[in-house]
Design a protein around this nucleic acid. Structure first.
Length: 354
DNA sequence: AATTCGTGGAA
DNA sequence: TTTCCAAGAAT
């Protein structure tokens, strides 16, 4: 019994065989992917690497992920290697990729795999779903890609493909479980290739701002292509992005080292490194310096988060001696690459020429 | 169930 | 310049 009355979707079946044929000829070459020809020879991908790539790819472009994926797999070739690393080391490597809860969950998941599964990464969706940072999509993707579990893999790409194919008249959020149930009925053998095919299709043919329907293997049965496929998926109104203001402080000592500290364990940029800032407020307030010094104004910076935009004035000064800034540490300019600094604070430091 | 989580590149 | 948005999860 489904917990919510998922609206039933009655529609013509989807030509999964045509999708697989298209994939055999057009599969994208990706660092974590086993090409369909190799997959047919029985070569299966490493679940650890598929998991790592899937977590990195959550709400993140392939272009942004590439270098991070290469670095992580070089540093930590197995899940046991990753589990053995300190969390703060993982955060340093994740810095700049965003959505830092992913890195904390990644590390927790690696340790759970070592503890609960003896270091053998699970490949069944039900077990995967119980691990930190693995939700419905990621569990299904790993299970399908590594073990050909015949499970619906529904990501943003596939949602768009299906919304157009079915000419879905409501926002995807309102029909998600119905879409999942419909897709589940369409999953063929070679479930892993089918999942990757549907995602490639959404990324290259049935893209957000362009639909190359003449090249699409699903064009014959597609309801969206009969008028304007680009009107789907129907989306809800976007709330506008508020602005917040604050002041950031680049504090140097006599050697030129920079004062950094760790952000709180919860909330935005949790546990990452930062330069001190004032609280961020919805109105621009006069600056309150952390100590009396010869403060100089630097170029202010703007940083855009998902749900607000931040305008930071940037100030710099030499710390008083002896410096009583207890909870943080001093970092040499050459050592900043080894700090878990989010892009926001890279911008702040760049404003000081660092 | 609606919000809260980053970032950078493309249109 | 502004807008959109990318292989979502946790709460």
């Amino acid at each position: 019994m489904p917990k919510s009355p998922a609206r039933q979707i009655d529609a013509a079946p989807l030509d999964a065989a045509a999708v697989l044929q298209w994939y055999d000829r057009n599969a994208r070459d990706l660092p974590w992917r086993v090409p369909p020809a190799d997959r047919a020879r029985g070569i299966a991908p490493d679940p650890y690497r598929i998991w790592l790539s899937e977590v990195m790819l959550q709400q993140t472009t392939i272009a942004a992920v590439r270098s991070y994926y290469a670095r992580f797999t070089a540093l930590w070739p197995s899940v046991a290697d990753l589990a053995a690393a300190p969390l703060d080391r993982v955060l340093v490597e994740w810095a700049g990729l965003g959505y830092y809860a992913r890195a904390r969950n990644l590390h927790a998941c690696a340790r759970a795999v070592v503890e609960r599964h003896g270091g053998v990464f699970p490949t069944r969706s039900a077990e995967l779903l119980a691990l930190p940072g693995i939700g419905a999509y990621t569990a299904a993707a790993i299970a399908a890609i590594t073990g050909d579990e015949e499970v619906a893999v529904l990501d943003g790409n596939v949602e768009r493909v299906l919304a157009r194919y079915l000419a879905l008249p409501v926002p995807v959020r309102e029909a998600k479980e119905g879409l999942r149930a419909y897709l589940q009925e369409q999953v063929p053998q070679r479930a892993g290739d089918f999942a990757q095919a549907m995602m490639d299709l959404g990324a290259t043919i049935c893209a957000p701002r362009s639909a190359l329907c003449m090249l699409c293997p699903l064009q014959p049965g597609c309801l969206g292509t009969r008028a304007d496929p680009l009107v789907y998926p129907v989306k809800a109104a976007k709330p506008e992005r508020p602005v917040r203001f604050g002041h950031a402080f680049v504090i140097r000592d006599r050697d030129g080292d920079i004062y950094l500290r760790r952000r709180p364990e919860k909330g935005l940029l949790a546990r990452m490194a930062e330069t001190p800032t004032t609280p961020w407020t919805d109105e621009a307030l006069p600056v309150v310096f952390p100590f009396a010094a010869d403060w100089r104004a630097l170029m202010p910076i703007t940083h855009v988060f998902t749900h607000f935009r931040l305008e930071l004035s940037v100030w710099t000064a030499e710390a008083p001696v002896p410096a009583d800034l207890a909870e943080g540490w001093w970092a040499a300019p050459e050592g900043l690459d080894d700090e878990a600094l989010p892009s926001l604070f890279r911008k702040v430091l760049a404003s000081a020429g660092l």
